[in-house]
Design a protein around this nucleic acid. Structure first.
Lengths: 205, 205
DNA sequence: TAGATTGTTAATCGATTAACAATC
DNA sequence: TAGATTGTTAATCGATTAACAATC
């Protein structure tokens, strides 16, 4: 269906290309080459050409790629040529930070609701959002048709909340809890655990 | 020096193993197998055995691995058998969240200082830390001997701050700014960009 | 046209898996 | 001992790179 089965590892690089290209566009640049883009993102020119060519012939020999055109193509491919509604679960410091995060703008996402199980927090404002009761979460996410959630609850609660999110129809979870989640095969998970990222660097110090 | 050159991809998985093993230890478990650990982290048993065996023979045929022993070995290998001081740059919502983050405990890190260039923020408390002036950052980081920093400043400022951090002796940067940083080869960078992580999932929706 | 750069092929390189002897 | 599981080898699989014809 989606072309002839693209490897995950290629999909994983496309957002990085897109971010660099959008930055170039913001700077007023019109075209770039695999060479130049590669220098920006730290990936070989050959690999960038190969990755992009999986999806079509978007470049021109001799001149390279039109930045605007390639941005549009990548946005289509990654399905961020639209705005996805995102739910945040957990209204602690991290939930607070992601709910207020300005960096989703022009990247395809917007936060539409935030939930917490702590009755003390329910009803309070976080930025422009009122914290909603986690007990109403499943119904509310179903009602809103939300497919993407960011999970910012304590590790001990994370698996239970993830199960509820799946039940509510969520198909992509950005997990800030420091734990490996177990989800059905049709649900995608990406993990952000600062300690894991730091531990990937200390080995080399 | 460090054994016979371990691939980055293996180093990247070790923190995930460590996190799962520490969790098992917290639950009071004493031993595990590559099979069981693999189910927890979603990696094949063969791969886990192969990864671990790069560093020594830590298991026992027939019984598997002592969790406590393996945790200690992984902590040594990753050099988190100590506490690393970490500096936070940027006292916005994200800097706030990482400075207060409780999840560094027992993972090898502690925040020791937070900096911002906004004079309005300097002197104010964030949790237990007083926000320090970014102008004093280089000297202060040198004085403290900090080797690790978390960068939570706007994209436009990130490269400049990264250059300063490198100049101050920092050798590992956890970058929360949505931009690819350019650093010398002896400096490690890991990126956390929620939009990138989300865009890695929307393709599959 | 001459120069530049793509898209693609083939060659290389590296990572994962399967299988099993060793052994607890 | 019998059963279980490691560490390791060889086979498979997949990803990256180099090279170049095509062509803008």
């Amino acid at each position: 269906m989606n072309a002839k089965k693209i490897p995950d590892i290629i999909i994983g690089r496309l957002p990085v290309y897109l971010r660099a290209l959008q930055r170039m566009a913001d700077m007023g640049l019109k075209t770039t080459s695999s060479q130049e883009l590669g220098e920006h993102v730290g990936i070989s020119a050959a690999q960038i050409r190969k990755d992009i060519s999986q999806f079509g012939e978007f470049g021109k020999q001799g001149t390279g790629y039109s930045i605007e055109y390639l941005v549009n193509k990548l946005r289509e491919i990654l399905k961020v040529d639209r705005i996805w509604d995102v739910a945040v679960v957990g209204a602690g410091d991290m939930g607070h930070a992601v709910a207020n995060y300005q960096g989703f703008m022009n990247r395809g996402f917007r936060v539409v609701a935030i939930f917490d199980s702590d009755k003390e927090k329910v009803g309070h404002l976080i930025g422009e959002f009122m914290v909603e009761d986690a007990e109403t979460m499943i119904e509310r996410i179903r009602g809103l048709g939300v497919r993407i959630a960011m999970l910012a609850v304590p590790a001990a609660a994370a698996q239970g909340v993830a199960d509820q999110l799946v039940q509510a129809g969520v198909r992509a979870i950005l997990n800030y809890a420091p734990i490996s989640l177990n989800v059905p095969g049709n649900v995608k998970v990406q993990c952000i655990d600062p300690s894991i990222h730091l531990q990937r660097m200390t080995f080399y110090l």
